[in-house]
Simulated assay, not measured.
Amino acid sequence: MTQFRPCIDLHQGKVKQIVGGSLNDKGAKENFISEYNAAYYASLYREHGLTGGHVIALGKGNHEEALSALRTYPGGLQFGGGVTARNAAGYLEAGASHVIVTSYLFKDKEFSWDRLDKIKRETGVDRLVLDLSCRRTEDGWYIATDRWQTITSMPVTHESLTELADHCDEFLIHAADVEGLQAGIDEELVSLLGQGCPVAVTYAGGARSLEDLKRVNDLSNGIVDLTIGSALDIFGGQGVTLDDCILWNQAQSA
């Protein structure tokens, strides 16, 4: 059954919620800047037994905050943001349950199977999450790298998901076009992900209420988990509370 997955998004050394499609070298459109640090949120998630969440470093200046979160909740959070074959093991040693990788796997917009093999040798399949965050085009969804600004040649289809599933433990997929807008989830993408995705998959983007958890559960037959960011009360949102999400998870587990 669909579970709520927590997140900690880091930008310029602070916990933030941003509009995903606005992120570039100059900054981003910000929905929320927290007065609390990453360790605070990691402790909160640990206290409530929330697992499978992710810490994402959006650009430079987030390294120490990311490490503090991983050390606060060892084994309870995944880490993504600038992960390569060279540094992946270090994040696992710092406490990440998994590392999340995307941009490293592409060279000149083309997927690199050689780089995938290199990072698998460092992490193992069971501690690797492939970030297939994507943007919609006239021809469907395509993986977007470099803070979701570069659209690659790799489509997100049933065939590509099946092919990549043998090389990782999970998928993480932000719908970059609706990320941070609180305008509703991309229902077509969620439905696609729910069509027999071979590994666990977490979707993020556009969620605005508890009803979205129910909707994702229905659209994906309970296969896809959901991250809620900007709409969540702990990030200044008014659409849904963390307590509601905790109760949802408990009900699904029961």
Rank of each mutant, 00 (worst) to 15 (best):
L23C: 01
D169N: 14
S133K: 06
D146E: 08
E188D: 14
T123R: 02
S230F: 08
G239V: 11
A204M: 05
D169F: 09
V240A: 12
L181D: 06
C197I: 03
L58T: 03
R147N: 04
G205E: 01
L226V: 06
V190T: 05
I8F: 12
F235L: 13
D166T: 10
A144D: 03
V55W: 09
L189C: 04
T152K: 03
A88F: 12
G53K: 05
F32K: 15
G95F: 14
Q12G: 11
F235K: 15
G75F: 07
R46F: 11
L213A: 06
E47A: 15
I119P: 01
D139E: 07
D139C: 02
M154G: 00
F171K: 09
D186H: 11
G82S: 07
L247P: 01
H54T: 11
R86S: 08
V101W: 07
V83H: 01
G27E: 08
D139M: 02
G80T: 07
D9S: 07
V101D: 02
L164C: 03
G49M: 07
T157R: 12
L172M: 08
D243G: 11
I234G: 14
P6L: 14
D139L: 04
G95L: 13
R208W: 08
V83W: 00
K118A: 12
V216K: 14
